[in-house]
Design a binder for these strands. Structure first.
Lengths: 347, 347
DNA sequence: AATGGCACTCTCACATCGAGAGTGCCAACT
DNA sequence: AGTTGGCACTCTCGATGTGAGAGTGCCATT
């Protein structure tokens, strides 16, 4: 299996590269013509036959060219992993875009998704950084109408969530503000577990709000929660793999329903560490429906404090050489941003 | 043109209904078999020929069945407009879902999109209600780290927006709170134009925040801003109209880019009044790329105070009989919700 | 006005067929 | 032993042809 000669390995990489951009089975003749290997087509055939034997290539049918197997892609990817780099000019362009963007998690996520999709020509996925331990920072109560109150909750790290609630009876804005202020001074910096033990407040209103704050913070803790930013869905539809509308529908469904995606990203988050890439080829890792597809995933952020996941989805025949370094670079960039935002939080 | 006999009209409606659910040109023989009209196929042929002459039907080629023209659909739709009603059981189910949902604009929009998509088997689009005149309600400044500050702005009506800003030098949370409080007392209830004239605050920090608040409120004013909630993209991909991946891609692009969609919805908002439906057939109204498609749109909310747009997109051959009453019903429902939330705001 | 009959047209599914591409193997060459 | 040219073989794919089926329009008849 692993006894690939240098030549075989080189040949395999060329074949895969060619297949990736031509999307057609590659034959021996085509190879000698396009890449001036100093070999005849017969020799190539010989080697290709060997590679097929070893499980790196496969023929769709007798007398078609060869197509990479998952095993083949895996080898290709492991090669890219160490070799591929993003041209410095591209790095600069991307960094520049981030510098120019309005600051804010939402904007960054959008931008990251956009950059990933554009560079990789695949579908990008980005989750916002999630704090490992969620701490209360601030709550605000705003009366919108008679009995309706808007609660705005800020979690340490800058995540904002809002919730509308209806009180049993009207309460003045003044009293709401006082309640919020009281809670703020008491609760600031507390975690969910600490909050949970603080039951039984004297004031009924205060108690209600506390319960709600707790519920909202619990929700924020769940790893499967949270928006997934995506971009580039149209990219992938033009790939021949998705010409059949059935295949396309299955892929689109996954991106529309989100729940499957959330599961997958959450699971990936467990298996990978910040800084390392994970490439799932051919629906590896519980991904039955889309055997034709691959994902390049990475985790970013500050380990132990706040991390998120990001990645690219595409056909198995995706432009790994471009995608891998891009994912790596963007992950690094976001890690820095998270770091900047989190660092020195305690002071 | 308008001199349709009763029988011709009835026949046309049957033909369109049949075409809508079979997606195939309908012929005279098929009609007599499936719907026991007490007529022979020859007679039907005669009438169909007349309808074709009048421009309501069309043959894809000699000796295929007939297919409705845009004109045909238009007549069909105007019929549905007055006739179609949503079964009470469905109405109840939908109302129930809204009652059960967590309160909050975001949740309502999601739910509305989901219901519309599900009922119509098309792609739904919903924009959040936008206030006609935007008034400041509340601002909060939260220090997240040394020089970084999170500004949370609440607009009258409950819309929340957040923005991260970096100050020239660190400012204590206490001072931030005081600044926010000062601004709140001065600005509450003011409109954009009123705010714009309030320049030159003594305090530099206060001035900075004021500028930012103003910018953010201006952004909220632009009609093309704001998220569009969509759902049901997969529904439409299974329709034969989108079997060709090219057609599908064009549609998907529109839904992914959003900007075209925002334009369209904004334009519709101008032309229509709350309570009335608008049906765009075959890409009417500046919609060049998708001649095969239709949209059923409605405006909801409280005229003069806060309104939003919602609708369904699908193939021209969409289930109007189902879609029209659903759109109408959901629009009414949202109008009530908006009304509940807005009413009595001034007290 | 409605109908049955009939000739005509057009598509679509299916079969046939040859070109082209690619393969594997073998004998010959370096 | 590795490499190469040659050759027979296989398989797909697009072009072409054909017949069934569906649908039409028209006309003479009821």
């Amino acid at each position: 299996m692993s006894d690939l000669s240098e030549r075989q390995k080189a040949l395999l990489l060329v074949i895969i590269r060619d297949y990736i951009d031509a999307a057609q089975p590659v034959g021996s003749k085509r190879l000698v013509e396009r890449y001036h290997l100093d070999l005849s087509s017969a020799t190539i055939r010989h080697e290709m036959s060997a590679l097929t034997e070893m499980g790196y290539l496969r023929q769709p049918h007798t007398s078609a060219g060869r197509v990479p197997t998952e095993e083949g892609y895996r080898l290709f990817v492991s090669e890219m992993m160490s070799q591929a780099v993003l041209p410095e000019s591209v790095q600069n362009t991307i960094s520049h875009q981030f510098l120019q963007a309005r600051p804010g998690v939402d904007q960054w996520m959008h931008l990251a998704a956009s950059v990933l999709a554009h560079q990789s020509q695949g579908v990008s996925m980005v989750t916002a950084p999630r704090l490992e331990t969620i701490r209360f920072q601030h709550v605000e109560l705003i009366s919108t109408q008679g009995r309706q109150v808007l609660m705005v909750l800020v979690i340490a790290g800058g995540e904002v969530s809002q919730q509308l609630l209806t009180l049993a009876e009207p309460v003045s804005q003044e009293r709401l503000s006082q309640t919020a202020q009281r809670l703020n001074t008491v609760l600031v910096g507390e975690t969910v577990t600490e909050l949970a033990s603080m039951t039984g407040r004297a004031d009924a209103l205060e108690q209600d709000i506390l319960t709600l704050v707790l519920a909202e913070m619990r929700r924020a803790t769940e790893s499967t929660s949270g928006e997934i930013y995506t971009d580039g869905l149209t990219n992938v539809l033009s790939e021949p793999e998705f010409a059949e509308s059935d295949e396309a529908r299955r892929a689109l469904r996954i991106f529309e329903e989100r729940s499957t995606l959330q599961d997958l990203l959450a699971r990936t988050a467990l298996n990978s560490t910040v800084g390392g890439l994970q490439v799932l080829i051919g629906g590896e890792g519980g991904w039955e429906e889309l055997r034709q597809c691959s994902m390049v995933l990475a985790r970013y952020g500050v380990p132990g404090l706040a991390t998120g996941t990001l990645g690219v989805f595409g056909p198995m025949r995706m432009a790994y050489a471009r995608t891998i370094p891009t994912v790596r670079f963007v992950a690094g960039l976001l890690s820095n941003l998270v770091n900047d935002q989190i660092a020195g939080q305690d002071q």
